Computed example of a mutant assay.
Amino acid sequence: MKIKQYLPTVLTMGNIMCGFLSIMCVLNQRLEIAAWLIIVAMILDGFDGKLARLMNTASKTGAQLDSMADLVAFGIAPAVLMTKMCNNSPIVISWGFGLFFMMCTAYRLARFNAQKEEAIQLPRHFFTGLPSTLAGGTVAQLCILHHFIYTRFGTDIIVNFLPFIVFTLGVLMISKIPFFNITCKIGKRQGIKAVILEFSAAIVYFIITPELALSSALSFYLIICGAYGIVKGKQIKGAQPV
């Protein structure tokens, strides 16, 4: 087997490694670094499956490994991060909403895998509910935005609302609201070189983009693609979107 065929697995392992390191950073009071590691995990997650399909190396083992990595990077790590950020809130709120978010992530991933196992034919351009990747990424970018606002204006406004935002994200994940798949155009027709180029561009983007631009990008997706999905979802017949 050629070395390049292992690349998708390497990216998936990088995803779960970022999740673990993020948790360790939270435990060591490095919250902003922990948030950025989740963002890096988002980039890796966006390309491992695509590369596996391009290289014809997709497998059930790879799919299960990807879900496990997603649970760590976009379920457990963001929940721990939120809990630490809101350590001044009552434990029943910070721990409770963090646990709820993690459980919703696990359910969202399990539902996705079950639908694939049952070979349900589903519209390619939509997700059922908010993807766990974007839910976890939203928690991370709120941490980054909080650090940006707090260092300049000295306000904890984001922390005050974060538990309730996390709760809403959890509800959106387990809902059946269709969210438009903005990455669906990254497919086989582009070729491996194009995907690698997009992967590299994404890395550069997240390195040089300031905090406000990151927040704007994810907020734009949540609002615009979510609203578009609700409208278009009424036109989908015969199947639920994935």
Rank of each mutant, 00 (worst) to 15 (best):
M173H: 01
I224W: 11
R53S: 08
L214F: 07
A41W: 06
K176C: 09
M42D: 02
L142A: 02
G191K: 03
P163H: 02
V139R: 00
A201F: 01
N87R: 12
I203D: 04
A227T: 14
E198M: 10
Q115F: 06
L122V: 13
L27E: 12
T105Y: 00
L65R: 13
V139E: 00
F164K: 02
K232R: 15
K237M: 14
A213H: 08
A73M: 09
L145H: 00
K60T: 14
C104Q: 07
Y150M: 05
I208C: 06
M1S: 12
S200H: 00
I208K: 06
A201D: 04
R53W: 12
F126M: 07
V139F: 00
C25Q: 08
L31K: 08
C104D: 05
N113A: 07
F97Q: 04
G19M: 04
F199D: 01
I182V: 11
Y205P: 00
A194F: 02
G170R: 01
T138E: 01
S200F: 07
F206A: 01
F20T: 13
K60M: 12
M55L: 15
Y205T: 07
T183I: 01
K50L: 10
G238A: 13
T128F: 04
K234I: 12
K4H: 14
W36T: 04
L99G: 08
A119N: 15
V139C: 04
E117T: 13
I224E: 05
G96F: 07
N15V: 02
Q64S: 13
Y150K: 11
T61L: 15
V10E: 03
E198A: 10
F100L: 07
L11Y: 08
G154T: 04
L197G: 05
L130P: 01
T183G: 03
S200T: 14
K237H: 15
G170Q: 00
I224T: 13
V166N: 00
R111L: 09
I203Y: 03
I224F: 15
L7D: 04
H125K: 14
P90F: 10
P8I: 05
T138Q: 01
A217G: 03
G233F: 09
E198S: 10
V166C: 08
V231K: 13
F74T: 03
L169V: 02
T83E: 12
G129V: 03
W95G: 10
N181C: 04
S22A: 14
I207Q: 02
I91T: 14
C143L: 06
E118L: 15
